[in-house]
Amino acid sequence: MNRAKSQRRFVLACLAPAVILVAIFIFYPTINVFKMSLFRMGAITNTSEFVGLSNFKTLMEDKNFLEAMQNTILIIVLVMICTIVLAILFAALLSRGKFKGKNFFRVIFYIPNILSIVVIGGIFGAIYDPSNGLLNTFLEAIHLDGLTHKWMGEPDIVIYSVIFALVWQAIGYYMVMYMSGMSAIPEDLYEAASLDGSSEIHTFFSVTLPLIWTNIRTTLTFYIISTINLSFLFVQIMTDGGPNGKTEVFLNYMYKQAYGNGAYGYGMAIGVVVFLFSFILAAIVNKITDREVYEM
C-alpha cells in the first residue's frame, strides 16, 4: 500500500514539470488567444475593448480572408497529395530498389529540409526570375519558349510556384519517415511475395503500403499543421501574398492584420479560426483514413 503510494507520488513528481510547462507555454497562450479574439485591442499599447463575437462576424464577410482561406486549402491539398506520392515513391525506391548511390540520394533528398527558408526563398527567386531565371532560360535554351511564364507574376500560376517550392522542401523529411516505416517490414514478407510470383509493383501495393499505413496516417496530420505554418514562411519570403492577394495565406493575413493594420484582436480571431480549422481537418482526415491495422 505504502509502496503504491510512493510510486504514485514519484510519477506525479516526474510529470509535474512537463504538465506545468505545457500549461504555461501551450494551454495558457491558446486560451488567451481565444479570449483576445473577443476584444478590439491595439497591437502596441495595452488598450482593449470587449466586442463579443463582432470580430468573427467581420471575418465571415472579409473577402481578403476568404481568399486567404481558399489559397490555404488549395495549398494544403496539393502539397499533401504531391508530397505523399513523391515521398513514398522515393522512399520505396531507396529502401527496396537495387542501385548504386542510394545513400547519396538519401542525403540529396534531405538537404532542402535543413536549408533555412531564406535560402530557399533565394534559390526559388533565382529559379523563377522572369528574365534571368533558371527555369525560363532553360526553357528558352531547349526551344520551348512557349512554356516560359512569369512564374511569380501571373495570377493563375503564382500559387503553383509556391506549392512547388513547398513540395520540394517537404519531400525529404517525409521520405525519411516512410523509409523508417519500410525498413521495419520483415524481409520474409517480401520473400514470400516473390515466391508467390508477385510483381514489384503488386508487392508495393499489397505489402509495403498496407504495412506503413499507420505511418502515413500520422504524417497526414503533420502535413496539415506544417503546411499551414510553412506556407506562411514561404509566402512571406517569396511573394508576400502578391500579386494583389493571389498567394495570401491564413497566417500571413493574420500577421498583416494584427501588426500591419493594428487590429490585434481581429488577428487573434483569425488565429482562432485557423486553430479550429486545422484541428477539425486533422480529425476528419484521421477518421476517414481509419483502417484495420496489419500486424507485422
Binding site: 533565394g122 523563377y128 522572369p130 512569369k150 507574376g153 502578391g242 500579386p243
Partner: peptide, 13 residues
C-alpha cells in the same frame, strides 16, 4: 515593363 509585377513581390525583387 513586363517583369515589374513578378519582381515586385519577391523578396528583394
Amino acid at each position: 515593363q513586363e517583369d515589374t509585377v513578378a519582381n515586385a513581390n519577391a523578396d528583394g525583387g
